[in-house]
């Protein structure tokens, strides 16, 4: 664990909490792309299946449980509890155009052709494009509430910090994962705008 990864995880956690609290307090999900939130829930589900098979640390396990719990809670609030405030007309990005190519790529380019590894690779590729429906929705509505921009900033910052984490780990541990790095660069670039 290094300072970049820790601040990255905390920034990620902050983004997830900011969004969840914003929807809960305002009792509205106006301006929020439910599709992006579903994609994030899918990212965490496919990436953290190893919760069932391996224990790395209390921090690792608790953060994974929190991420999964909050992402499903957010999806629940959008599509169930505050469904009336969901702006479906503007949330019209065709996610199948993301999931299918990402799924195909995960099967073609991965570290190991095992189910868990392919699902992990799928989650890495999907996470890099999961924000597109949200960005698309903001471009259609032409506006983003302040809190949504805070959410996007923290979310973008998290993966940018992970890039520094990977530089750190390569330099000090000789560890690097090309798939995560390439997807992380794509993800960070997407947030820059």
């Amino acid at each position: 664990m290094n300072v970049f990864r820790l601040t990255g995880d905390l920034s990620h956690l902050a983004a997830i909490i900011i969004l969840l609290l914003k929807i809960w307090k305002t009792r509205s999900c106006a301006g929020i792309s439910g599709k992006s939130q579903i994609l994030f829930a899918l990212v965490f589900t496919t990436r953290y299946l190893d919760l069932l098979t391996s224990f790395i640390s209390l921090y690792n396990t608790s953060m994974k449980v929190i991420y999964i719990g909050c992402s499903y809670a957010t999806v629940y609030l959008i599509y169930m509890k505050f469904r009336a405030t969901y702006d479906g007309n503007h949330d019209s990005f065709r996610v199948e155009f993301l999931v299918v190519p990402v799924g195909g790529l995960a099967v073609l380019i991965n570290h190991d052709f095992s189910p868990l590894e392919i699902l992990w690779t799928f989650s890495i590729y999907l996470e890099s494009v999961a924000i597109l429906p949200q960005l698309f929705m903001i471009s259609k509505t032409g506006e983003a509430e302040t809190i949504t921009t805070h959410y996007l900033f923290c979310l973008g910052l998290y993966r940018a910090l992970y890039l520094f984490n990977w530089i750190w780990r390569y330099y000090f541990e000789g560890f690097f994962d090309m798939i995560a790095i390439v997807a992380g660069v794509v993800q960070t670039v997407l947030y820059c705008d």
Binding site: D9, Y67, W120
Partner: peptide, 10 residues
């Protein structure tokens, strides 16, 4: 190779 599979990152 196995450390690449050990996913210790979130």
């Amino acid at each position: 190779e196995d450390d690449a599979n050990l996913k210790d990152e979130l």
